[in-house]
Design a protein around this nucleic acid. Sequence first.
DNA 1: AAGAAGATTCGCT
DNA 2: GCGAATCTTCTTA
Length: 169
Amino acid sequence: MSGRIVETEAYPPGDSSGHAYRGRTARNQSLFLGTGFAYVYFIYGTSYMLNVSAEEPGVGAGVLMRAIEPLEGINRMKRLRKTDKLTDLARGPGRLAAAFEIDQRLDGVDLCADGPLWLGTAVRETASIGTTVRIGITREVGQLRRFFESGNPFVSGPRQREKKSSGLP
DNA sequence: AAGAAGATTCGCT
DNA sequence: GCGAATCTTCTTA
């Protein structure tokens, strides 16, 4: 199975909405391994989330994978997700994890090495990148840290760059 | 030791 | 649109 990452959110060091904010724990230790490791956790009793760690070893930071455009193994993803709708296979962080059979066993995996899950380089030019506030968080709401390919149908939530609001001070 | 909140999804209305 | 499902962690007593 494979796909193109089309939507992400950044959780940089010192971001109070990030899981690494209150220091290293048993659950979030993968965020402190260095750059390019998987951080997988379970939330709401229903969904797994996949992050890619960032920054140097000892620094807690990561990028949440929010949506993927499926490329290979689509039939398998349809079975895993129990839907035939192409755009619903990996649109959303929990769905993405389900489509790729990602769970806590993949926590801590080096995504830049040979293994069960890895990151490759772009297979096709990316269209323009849109930016909005992050989804589903309550802190640091003013930050534009969600990034996605503009207009891509596999993106969850708003698909166009957030408009400059006219009414704010 | 108990409770609330959370980077969500699904099913029903 | 709204609420339930249901696990882990951190906070409060």
